[in-house]
Design a protein around this nucleic acid. Structure first.
Lengths: 236, 236
DNA sequence: CAGGTTGGTGAGTCAGACTCACCCGTTTAG
DNA sequence: CTAAACGGGTGAGTCTGACTCACCAACCTG
């Protein structure tokens, strides 16, 4: 019997190894959550030893952040594009809500990591991920602002509050689904949320004018109503 | 010099010791967050040794849950009471929003623990704290339901969604304050959130009247239309 | 081929949650 | 009154998992 062969470690280029680690980390973090994941398990999936992971990522947490950054950038490719193709602020709002819901439906585990492990931690504020997220939510604010300029949304709405209401509502409502309980009908939900918010934020230009016109019509009708008997009397 | 005096551990009744530990734990958890808190530090604050804490609380996490349960029960004393004294669903909604905001303003650190460390963990669902929280949010749902019955809120609103929108909006909007950044004007915020939601969910009394008036106008117009030819014929 | 560069190793250290055998003051049964 | 049972408290452990570091070996370069 020969001596156990000295294992020859597989040498990869830096980026390639980093890519493998990120991919494995994404899988394991999703499967077990951040706390329950051992860096050694991620390493084992790549066929390397724990120390190798720490060679490329200074801490476990940094690794988590990079996993989510990659995911964000991967998602953002075609984000602003087809927004311009939709006409009307209400429909654009609905699209943004729907698309956020779709991300949650398609990647509940990554969303969970994002909402729970990352966004609430001290080091998130000011991080690259925070920047990415701001760019993401800014799209909504810009859309709403366009709606204000176009007269479709009332001028007295605090847009930052409205932005937080949109994303806060969605996250809170989908939390059960994100935790693996229950289903998520994104079409119905997007419709309901949009309807609820819109009827609160759409400028009531139509209503006001309608009221004015109606009042005028009522006056006219009343005058005619009063006049009619006289005319009829005159006839006779 | 005498031999170092054999330390005589202070013996307390079970409940008393538990109370001290809960109190110390609350302070340290608030100051440093859950992860950064060492059980040994909590023990030191009570003048006991680490093992003593584990005598009364099986795990660090269980200790956290009990801390928050105590806080919840402490807050709930007079919760449903003065709600009945407020007339009108809109004002009741505003009160509930305002009171939730007040809790956040007054106990941001405990809220942070609740939102971040507890509510998003697997063992929360079905826990005592979950039950307390459901009782708390149910108050809002009941209030809204009363509003529906009273005709103040549209019948086609999904109340669970609306409940999640209320609490989700508030949490998302106050997160910066909870993390120690920025201020929180609870009066203004409660007003804005209520206004935004209400104009989306209140049954449109104005519209209904508008419809009634329009229907009347149509009748008048029809009569006039029928009458007009006769009058014209008579005139000629 | 020598020397620098870089990917990879694995045996550590360290912190902190949790355990357990034991100690001793108090209470209670005989 | 005394001895056994009870229960609060101890502190020296164990164990897990993040993170470190001295070293190795395969490649590139002059």
């Amino acid at each position: 019997m020969s001596r156990p062969a000295a294992k020859a470690p597989v040498r990869l280029a830096r980026e390639e190894r980093v890519g493998h680690i990120l991919s494995a980390a994404r899988d394991v973090f999703c499967k077990k959550g951040y706390e329950q994941t051992a860096v050694s398990e991620i390493a084992a999936r790549c066929g390397v030893v724990e120390g190798t992971v720490f060679k490329y990522f200074p801490t476990k947490r940094e690794l988590l952040l990079k996993v989510l950054e990659h995911w964000y950038e991967e998602m953002f490719g075609d984000y602003a594009r087809d927004l311009a193709e939709v006409a009307g602020t209400r429909e654009r709002l609905r699209l943004l809500v729907w698309r956020h819901l779709r991300s949650i439906r398609d990647y509940p585990l990554l969303c969970r990591l994002m909402f729970r492990e990352v966004r609430s931690e001290h080091d998130y504020h000011g991080s690259d991920l925070h920047g990415l997220n701001r760019r993401y939510t800014q799209l909504l604010v810009d859309t709403l602002d366009d709606g204000v300029q176009a007269g479709e949304i009332r001028h007295d709405i605090a847009l930052p509050l409205l932005r937080d209401m949109v994303y806060g509502s969605i996250e809170h409502y989908t939390w059960n689904y994100i935790c693996g309980r229950g289903a998520l009908d994104i079409d119905a939900t997007a419709g309901q949320i949009t309807a609820l918010l819109w009827d609160g934020i759409s400028s009531r230009g139509a209503d006001v004018q309608l009221q004015r016109e109606t009042r005028r019509l009522v006056q006219i009708a009343s005058r005619l109503e009063k006049a009619l008997p006289k005319v009829q009397r005159a006839k006779s």
